[in-house]
Amino acid sequence: MGLKAAAKEIWTRLEDRPVLRSAIAIGGLLGLGLALVLGLAAVGIVSLRFLADNATFLAVPALTSLSATLLSFAIGFAGAIPMGLVRAFAPRILRGEGWRRAAFAPLYGAVTSYVEAIRGTPAFVQIFLVAQVSGLIFPGNPNIPFWGGTLALTINTLGYQTEVFRAGFQSVGQSQVEAAKSIGMRPVQVFLHITLPQGLRLITLPLVNEWVGLFKASALLAYVAVPELLWAASYLGNNRSHPIEAFIMVSSVYLAIIVPLSKAVGWWERKHRIPGLGVAERTVGVGRRRAVVAAGTPAGGLD
């Protein structure tokens, strides 16, 4: 058996050990990166000395990037739930009549325009705009770049997360809502106990994607003078004339945060998976298929 075939065999056997598989994959990636850096060092492009001397330089900027991302993501999350609700269910109300329609028409219009504006313009432009405006309002305040940048990220992720929640809420079946009503739940209870928990299950992956995207987009804050990761790396590279080292370092920091995080969420999701809802089972999901068939049975039946 050749080396390749042997590797493939081992990989297949690890089918139901996803954690081990991930560990091997990450380990392999690390090894490759290390080999690359050592190779570059051997031919004199990269200075190992410089890497070692500045190993901790990016720690504080990393915290800055993380804080801006976590804060804006959390606020965006809280805002996206009601806004996603409006996006998901206002169209149905608008088809009716009366005061509800009159009340929801402008609300739906506002939320939809917001989402379109955010998705239709570059994040960089949004960040620049917010930074300029907040600089004008609070001139000379040293904390303004960070808070203005975080505000800009919040405005941005709110638009995207609203659409994620809209999709999640809409994919919770009407029959689930009807069953909840039939046992006497009030609309708020139906939302809190049925639509929200089921919707969250369905959007775990898109939410993680949004977080990762936001974290990477936070690099744009370097251009509005926030001392975050990319800003620090540019500083290091330019001032000490070691740009390649600086960018190898900053890439490693991004990877070191993003890869374990998405792996951890994936692992959590599988560990707490509910048969027939959200992530698929790794093996063939008999129960899942049955649930889909049951839910898809047309009303009317045999006559």
């Binding site: 029959s175 689930q176 009807e178 069953a179 909840a180 009503k181 039939s182 046992i183 006497g184 739940m185 009030r186 049925i194 928990p197 089921q198 299950r201 509910i274 027939g276 809802l277 649930a291 049951a294 839910a295 049975t297 009303a299 039946g301």
Partner: peptide
């Protein structure tokens, strides 16, 4: 909601809460 507590309902496609 009060009425629906007095009168239960069973659906053709069961509609159990999937979560």
């Amino acid at each position: 909601e009060w009425v629906r507590q007095q009168v239960g309902m069973v659906f053709q496609s069961f509609n159990l809460f999937t979560h």
